[in-house]
């Protein structure tokens, strides 16, 4: 599920705004650090989890206003390189603020330990991640498919000019979409922090995984991101049992296989 959460923000931003965000992974890393910092200050993981998307959304909003907004009309290659620049800046910024040593984040005490589900032993915290991700997934789906905001976003991705002629403020719409997508990456980072810690260099890996999820599912497709996330999750779990070190290799191999069989991704538009 967590993989879905990483992929969905990327796919929303791409699908709705036709914008490729290579800084997506570093926002995930930043999410983990913000969560860590909030916990340091307040002592509560829960406040961390709630404040992280808000704070990272604020960062994303500022970035959108000063930089991203200039990039909607340019070539994908340019978007990629500029967001790589952004990635470097944020990553180095993290290293300056928090230093080069990864920070551990404690699992909240309620969620420590395991639960027995029939014959399966499952850590509580992982179940919590699944539940939260599923909840967020549902919320995102509802937002995109069932609300006026979602309809406008989707229309805006088809024909921004038309939408703006109809009196919708597309600048604001795009800014909100970007903030939303980035906030999702941030939440993913905060959720995984107790398992993986906060590491400035985890962004590359997160970006890679997010891309795999999105490529498997089909760029810009919400259900594709969901399915892609599930597939990556399943591959990860199975390999973790059979060949623990080989999970990453398997994930990328499965992606290659899917692309070979279905070049558009499972839900991608031709």
């Amino acid at each position: 599920m967590i993989y879905f959460l990483m992929g969905v923000g990327l796919t929303i931003i791409f699908g709705m705004m036709n914008f490729v965000n290579f800084a997506h992974g570093v926002f995930y890393a930043l999410g983990a650090f913000i969560c860590y910092q909030v916990i340091q200050v307040t002592g509560s993981y829960w406040i961390g989890l709630i404040l992280t998307p808000i704070l990272i959304g604020a960062v994303a909003y500022i970035l959108e206003k000063i930089l991203i907004t200039k990039l909607y009309r340019v070539d994908h290659a340019v978007q990629i390189l500029i967001t790589i620049g952004l990635m470097l800046i944020i990553r180095e910024g993290i290293l300056i603020i928090w230093g080069t040593v990864p920070k551990p984040v404690a699992t909240p005490s309620i969620l420590q330990g395991v639960i027995f589900l029939g014959d399966f032993v499952y850590p509580k915290y992982r179940l919590f991640i699944i539940a939260i991700s599923a909840g967020i997934g549902l919320g995102v789906w509802y937002l995109l498919e069932r609300t006026r905001f979602g309809i406008t976003i989707r229309a805006g991705s088809e024909n921004p000019k038309m939408v703006s002629l109809l009196g919708v403020d597309t600048d604001r719409l795009f800014a909100l979409t970007f903030v939303f997508g980035v906030a999702l990456a941030g939440i993913a980072g905060a959720l995984l922090a107790p398992i993986r810690g906060a590491d400035a260099f985890s962004g590359d890996e997160a970006l890679g995984i997010a891309f795999v999820v999105v490529v498997i599912g089909g760029m810009g497709s919400f259900s594709g991101a969901l399915l892609g996330g599930l597939i990556v999750g399943l591959v990860q779990s199975f390999t973790a049992i059979l060949w623990p070190e080989g999970t990453k290799v398997m994930i990328y191999s499965v992606m290659a296989l899917i692309i070979l069989l279905r070049p558009n991704g499972l839900f991608g538009k031709a």
Binding site: L67, L81, I82, I84, G85, L86, M87, L88, I89, E92, G93, I96
Partner: peptide, 8 residues
């Protein structure tokens, strides 16, 4: 960080 700025 300068490299990032330069790239942009």
């Amino acid at each position: 960080i300068l490299l990032g700025l330069l790239l942009i």
